[in-house]
Design a protein around this nucleic acid. Structure first.
Length: 368
DNA sequence: AACCACCGCAACCGCGCCCCG
DNA sequence: GCGGGGCGCGGTTGCGGTGGT
């Protein structure tokens, strides 16, 4: 049984709003408010529009103090940081950027920021095989890669890429990129995660992140905004989930010991050529440079932002992007990851965005 | 000048959640 | 407790603008 339409589709106007419609809607809402019922609102005004359309028009365009375009570097940073941490929770991200709408941010991300951050490696993708010894016809590793990525949602994939890209700046000699053979070994962890998620009501909407008090990254008002938002959306509950099902044998979680730590991201810990564990985020010290590096990435302040070797590393990692299988079937890492362990690991699940160092310290080791 | 491809943005759509009767 | 209606969100689409050939 289908969902009942919210309005009479045949009798509503679609498409761009005319100035007259805008004026009507704006005048009415400014005078009377929305009345708490968007569906009924267009009829009151005499607009042949769907209530949802009115709401969208108001929120994204007519509402006072809306800013359009011209995102600042700081806003870029915030968007990027939050996206990596919480994924495409545009409304939450928008709550941190006064005057910005979720739609605006979403568009900005999809059209500019994402390309800015991820697009760089596209070109390197072309010479991926030529740069490696792997036979492009050899499906073995490719199959594994596919297997590995199949469950990654696009969002998670992008975040993973961003994350790894940034990690590579911190740890340019990390072996992860250079050792595709190890990637499939991450699968057991993925499986555990899936089991975890399935075991927890099947609700993927969990945040894997860490919060911290005393932010200078977000101003007080923003924190309040977010808290409002998160409270209403029950984010606390979302955070309050667990890594149940991932045994200590599978991973080790280390949280920050510094001043302002602890955003925990799920970063595969991999083995180097000698079988030693090499944490992708092995260097806590290096993490403090994260924000600056992010700045650099976003602002393209450096022409060749990554040395050749790093470029190669990213090239290797591009395999994730190539895999277009049923990524969406697996929920992993993105928001999606059940992060109940937050509470059991002294995470302050109050608010994600209070985090002072959203990325400042994180290591979820994976024991191969 | 005309055509084409690409890009960016506004708007739409469908789904899940929440509230209320 | 249940079902319906409304809201909010994220993903997608469509269109106008712009730059390149």
């Amino acid at each position: 049984m289908g969902r009942a339409p919210c309005c009479d589709k045949a009798n509503v106007k679609k498409g761009p709003w005319s100035p007259e419609e805008d004026a009507k809607l704006k005048a009415y809402i400014e005078k009377y408010g929305t009345g708490g019922n968007w569906i009924a609102l267009p009829q009151k005004i005499g607009l042949k529009r769907c209530g949802k359309s009115c709401r969208l028009r108001w929120l994204n365009y007519l509402r006072p103090n809306i800013k359009h375009g011209g995102f600042s570097e700081e806003e870029d940073n915030i968007i990027c940081s939050l996206y990596i941490s919480i994924g495409s929770r545009w409304s939450i991200i928008a709550a941190q950027l006064p005057g910005r709408t979720d739609n605006d941010i979403k568009n900005y991300w999809n059209t500019k920021l994402k390309k800015k951050l991820l697009g760089r490696r596209k070109q390197s993708n072309n010479n991926r095989f030529s740069a490696s010894n792997q036979d492009p016809n050899d499906q073995s590793n490719g199959a594994d890669d596919n297997q590995f990525s199949q469950g990654l949602s696009n969002s998670a994939l992008e975040r993973l890429q961003l994350h790894m890209q940034l990690q590579s700046l911190q740890n340019p000699f990390s072996s992860f990129y250079n050792n595709p053979a190890i990637w499939p070994k991450i699968l057991p962890l993925q499986e555990k995660m899936i089991q975890t998620i399935q075991a927890s009501d099947g609700n993927p909407n969990n945040l894997l992140m860490q919060s911290q008090q005393g932010s200078d990254f977000y101003d007080h008002q923003q924190q309040q905004d977010y808290q409002k938002s998160s409270n209403s959306k029950g984010l606390d509950d979302q955070v309050d989930n667990s890594l149940d099902g991932i045994s200590p044998a599978d991973c080790s979680v280390h949280y920050g010991t510094g001043n302002n730590m602890v955003d925990s991201e799920l970063v595969p810990k991999v083995a180097d050529d000698h079988g030693n564990h090499v944490g992708m985020a092995q260097s806590n010290a290096g993490v403090s440079n994260f924000q600056a590096e992010l700045d650099e990435l976003l602002n393209s302040k450096t022409s060749g932002y990554a040395p050749v070797q790093q470029e190669d590393q990213m090239t290797e990692f591009d395999c994730f992007k190539d895999m277009n299988g049923s990524k969406d079937s697996l929920i992993w890492w993105s928001n999606d990851f059940d992060a109940k362990s937050a509470s059991s690991n002294s995470w302050d699940s109050n608010s994600v965005l209070q985090s002072n160092g959203m990325f400042q310290d994180y290591e979820l080791g994976y024991h191969m």
